[in-house]
Design a protein around this nucleic acid. Structure first.
Length: 245
RNA sequence: CGCAUCAUGA
């Protein structure tokens, strides 16, 4: 049983779907019933290959043979559908798993929140953020980063900054991504000096700025019409040994 | 019980 499940994982990574199906036949012939993990791996492999319909078929099949989908099954399905842009399917899976008495983990919540936000459904994203807390699922650094980015994109800059502070109160140190999101928000507000001071703070915290961070500053100053500042940051990037994209 | 899903700035 274990060996078969392991093989399904290996073949899945190699995208050998025909071999997988043969293996499953063999497995059943040997009297080994595929278990939840076998199915979960199968669903994940189909999802990665963008065969979402097949993934859903596996989901239905496993229930027909009396194998109850678990938390990972739902998380995987939500994950692959959200990433492929099928938020409606992801959301209905979310509802289904709640009916089954399960709730997503922090990763899965983050994926859904991010996708809802990207689709412009900020209200739903925020609602889900609240719901995950109610379910006792603790937001982590990435979850906060996502929420800050969404608020910033919706131009709710004060809300973004509030979350930025909430995050620190919750005991999370901002990382490179947080700083870059905050800098972008400040820049779009026209607070370019503030954005630069965030850059300084970031370096004080020993974060090494990467190309996107420098690129952001070049872009912000450029859009503000300050060619000197933009060139300055461009030079700083080159001095840091980074190449423009 | 374990194995299996791993998200954010360009």
């Amino acid at each position: 049983g274990h060996t078969y499940t392991t093989m399904v994982g290996i073949l899945g990574r190699a995208r050998r779907f025909d071999s997988i199906n043969k293996l499953l036949e063999q497995m059943v012939k040997d009297g080994c019933q595929p278990n939840v993990v076998t199915y979960n791996r199968l669903i994940h492999c189909y999802g990665c290959a963008n065969y979402l319909k097949e993934a859903l078929n596996v989901f239905n099949e496993m229930q027909e043979v009396g194998c109850e989908p678990d938390r990972v099954t739902y998380c995987t399905l939500i994950d692959i559908h959200a990433k492929a842009g099928f938020i409606d399917v992801a959301m209905s899976m979310y509802k289904r798993m709640q009916v089954a008495g399960l709730s997503p983990d922090t990763f899965t919540y983050s994926v859904i929140i991010n996708c809802l936000g990207k689709a412009g459904n900020l209200a739903a994203a925020h609602w889900l953020f609240c719901e995950m807390v109610e379910h006792g699922c603790v937001p982590n650094l990435v979850t906060y980063n996502i929420m800050i980015a969404l608020q910033a994109k919706a131009r709710n800059y004060e809300m973004a900054l509030k979350l930025y502070h909430d995050m620190q109160n919750a005991g999370f140190q901002p990382d490179k991504v947080t700083y870059s999101i905050v800098m972008e928000a400040l820049g779009h507000c026209g607070y370019l000096e503030e954005a630069e001071s965030v850059f300084v703070e970031m370096q004080q915290k020993n974060w090494v700025p990467d190309e996107p961070v420098y690129g952001l500053l070049v872009d912000l100053w450029g859009k503000a019409g300050n060619v000197e500042k933009a060139s300055e940051w461009y030079q700083a990037m080159l001095n840091a040994g980074l190449l423009p994209n």
